[in-house]
């Protein structure tokens, strides 16, 4: 890619990642949440891949790490749901609800959002990576 694209990417990619994390963490307070934030996180890595090529992005998150993190995200979500059994019911929100509209509130909802964010973020990244690898092997083959 051209110098302009690379420079702009270098400046913005951190901000995009940060914005994704913000959307995930404020999922219970404002529009957005685990899925939307996860997509933005994935886009920051996709952005990196578009500007600097596959290897730069894979150096940050390898495909193996992506697939492991995806499973961990799903298991985390299931774990948060299972936590409810301590209070007597599946998916029961047993953690302290805190004060409304504060960051640390709403019990297990932010934890679920984080789990979904991890799962969706690395999941989308892995899909994009798979498409890139397929395209490359098609050209070589």
């Amino acid at each position: 890619m051209s110098l302009i694209v690379k420079t702009i990417t270098r400046l913005t990619v951190g901000l995009i990642l940060l914005f994704g994390i913000y959307i995930i963490l404020h999922g219970h307070l404002s529009p957005g949440g685990g899925f939307a934030g996860g997509v933005i996180v994935a886009l920051s890595f996709v952005h990196l891949m578009l500007a600097f090529g596959k290897d730069t992005a894979v150096a940050k998150i390898s495909s193996n790490l992506a697939s492991n993190l995806e499973s961990i995200g799903a298991l985390m979500f299931l774990g948060v749901a299972l936590l409810g059994f301590l209070g007597g019911s599946f998916f029961l929100n047993i953690l302290g609800k805190g004060q409304s509209f504060k960051l640390f509130s709403a019990g297990s909802i932010p934890l679920s959002n984080i789990a979904i964010g991890i799962k969706v973020g690395v999941g989308l990244f892995a899909i994009f990576l798979a498409l890139v690898i397929l395209e490359k092997s098609k050209k070589e083959g």
């Binding site: 492991n68 499973s71 961990i72 799903a74 298991l75 299931l78 299972l82 059994f85």
Partner: peptide, 21 residues
């Protein structure tokens, strides 16, 4: 009655444990 959700929990947990380990 508490067994009912485990029909979903067990296969779902197994799926991701297998993909992880």
């Amino acid at each position: 009655v508490n067994i009912i959700p485990f029909f979903v929990i067990i296969p779902l947990g197994t799926a991701f444990l297998i993909s992880l380990l």
